[in-house]
Design a protein around this nucleic acid. Structure first.
Length: 491
DNA sequence: TGAAATGTTGGGGCG
DNA sequence: ACGCCCCAACATTTC
């Protein structure tokens, strides 16, 4: 970042979680407001999104920034990537370029909102205006409300209200077109000939120590995102309602990391969706609902939405947490999911529910422990989605599973991974077991185990808990909580 | 976006 | 032919 000559009329485009050119209202607004633009990404230490991200998300981010830079290069601009505190970095760039305006994509988590409010004040002292633009959602998260004017807490009611008030969110085109040319201050950043991540050493490191398997399956960036959408809508989307439940096949969209980094907008996805994909579009509204809940109940990122769960008798079980994290619980479907997560920074959604149920109900570990682990390992880490999902499973959240709903990892396995493909992929030491025992190796006769080369407790762990007993324990805990609430109810 | 226990029914074997 | 038992299959209730 040097030698950029001052432009009479330059605006900064501060991209955070909108790493794309199509349907990017921040970019469009900046183009309309200034003669030249400087697109910038700031890797700020302690940033609530990128700062707490784990290696998979950091690697994805680095790759996505490289892709964005290539797209910008095709339109006469380049991406500037800097590491440092947001305020100082923006002030430095503003001074260099003479920019008095910053256009950014809006962030919705409470920490980012507080930071943006602070930045708005601090920047205005230097004569700089910060504008944030709605980029990430089908609709802003304050609406709709119930007839009483309160936020919905049940998804189906929320979803119905969304469809009633605006059935075609984002319009038929899926958003504003990508600009054909992006004028930049002179000299163009491309002429500076600096490697993209030279001034963001932490991201440069992340770009090189990639979880390789992740990169084999996914292509970070706007182009890769659009290709993934096309592939999905051409095939799996048509059988999504059932296919999405089978972790052994490609039945889901696998769009979550693309969406998390804003490489493609949900408006564009909704506009491209074929009529047969309504079940999938409904899932986009689950994402909307997560942001809606985060907006109306910001405390629900870290604390139970339903306050009676503050009294829940969670267990302290470091050994159990460790077995869960490392995929050594002795329940093949749970272990397969946790190993998939560790290996590629992603996990099939049905399996996310199963492992979350196992942690919170079989082991009685607070959902926040699991949520933090997910945020650290998932390439698609999204605070709103993550908290909603975990609270849903734990029973403490909106539209929550009733407290007595406990997933049986064996039944879930036989039902949704009947051929055992998923388990065999991620728990190879069980691969030779016949289907009948692949989800419950402890039930196999000694001879079958021996023929499959499985020795429980040596090559693969024996179950760390008995699920039937654990289920009873969970029901008792949740039952006590319910009784508690009744006796404590104010009169 | 659950699972297990309990209840019901109907067919077939058998005395 | 008939009643009885068993059990699978399905439905309902309960946690």
């Amino acid at each position: 970042m040097s030698d950029r000559c001052e432009s009479a009329d330059c605006a900064l485009v501060w991209l955070r979680r909108t790493l794309r050119l199509f349907d990017n209202p921040a970019l469009t607004a900046a183009l309309g407001s200034a003669r030249t633009l400087l697109p910038v990404f700031i890797d700020a230490p302690g940033d609530p999104l990128t700062g707490s991200a784990g290696p998979a998300a950091r690697t994805w981010l680095a790759r996505s920034l490289e892709a964005l830079d290539r797209s910008l290069a095709g339109r006469g601009a380049r991406l500037t990537v800097l590491e440092g505190p947001a305020l100082a970095t923006l002030l430095g760039l503003a001074k260099e370029t003479g920019a008095r305006t910053v256009h950014a994509d809006r962030l919705y988590d409470p920490t980012s909102q507080a930071r943006d409010a602070l930045l708005t004040r601090e920047l205005s002292l230097a004569g700089i205006t910060l504008h944030t633009h709605a980029c990430s959602l089908l609709r802003e998260p304050d609406a709709p409300l119930t007839a009483e004017g309160t936020p919905f807490r049940v998804f189906t009611a929320y979803h119905r209200a969304c469809l009633r008030t605006n059935p075609l969110d984002g319009g038929p085109d899926g958003g504003v077109p990508a600009p054909r040319h992006i004028p930049t201050p002179c000299p163009t950043p491309g002429e500076l000939a600096r490697p993209l991540l030279a001034d963001a050493p932490s991201l440069a490191r992340a770009a090189t120590d990639a979880p390789v398997r992740l990169l084999k399956q996914w292509e970070p960036g706007e182009e890769g995102a659009r290709a993934a959408v096309d592939r999905f809508f051409a095939g799996p989307a048509h059988d999504y309602a059932t296919g999405r439940d089978y972790p052994g096949i490609r039945g889901t969209s696998r769009l979550s990391p693309h969406l998390a980094f804003g490489e493609i907008s949900p408006r564009e996805i909704a506009a491209l969706a074929p009529p047969a994909a309504t079940a999938f579009v409904r899932q986009l509204y689950w994402r909307e609902f997560a942001y809606y809940l985060m907006h109306h109940f910001p405390h629900s990122l870290d604390a139970p939405l339903r306050p009676e769960f503050l009294d829940f008798p969670w267990a302290h079980d470091p050994a159990g947490v460790e077995a869960w994290k490392t995929g050594r619980t002795g329940y093949p479907l749970v272990d397969a999911g946790m190993r998939e997560l560790a290996a590629i920074g992603w996990m099939h959604n049905r399996v996310r529910m199963v492992v979350a149920s196992f942690l919170t109900k079989d082991l009685l570990i607070p959902w926040q422990t699991g949520a933090a682990h997910f945020v650290h390992l998932l390439a698609d880490a999204d605070l709103a989605n993550n908290a909603l999902g975990w609270q849903w499973v734990a029973g403490s959240g909106a539209d929550a599973a009733p407290y007595f709903r406990v997933f049986n990892p064996v039944l879930q396995g036989t039902r949704f991974d009947p051929g055992g493909d998923y388990v065999r992929t991620w728990v190879p030491e069980l691969a030779a077991l016949p289907n009948r025992f692949i989800h419950q190796p402890w039930a196999a006769p000694a001879q079958v185990l021996e023929e499959a080369g499985v020795s429980l407790g040596r090559t693969y762990p024996a179950p760390i808990v008995n699920h039937a007993e654990a289920r009873e324990r969970a029901l008792a805990s949740y039952g006590a909580l319910r009784a508690n609430r009744v006796t404590h109810r104010p009169r």
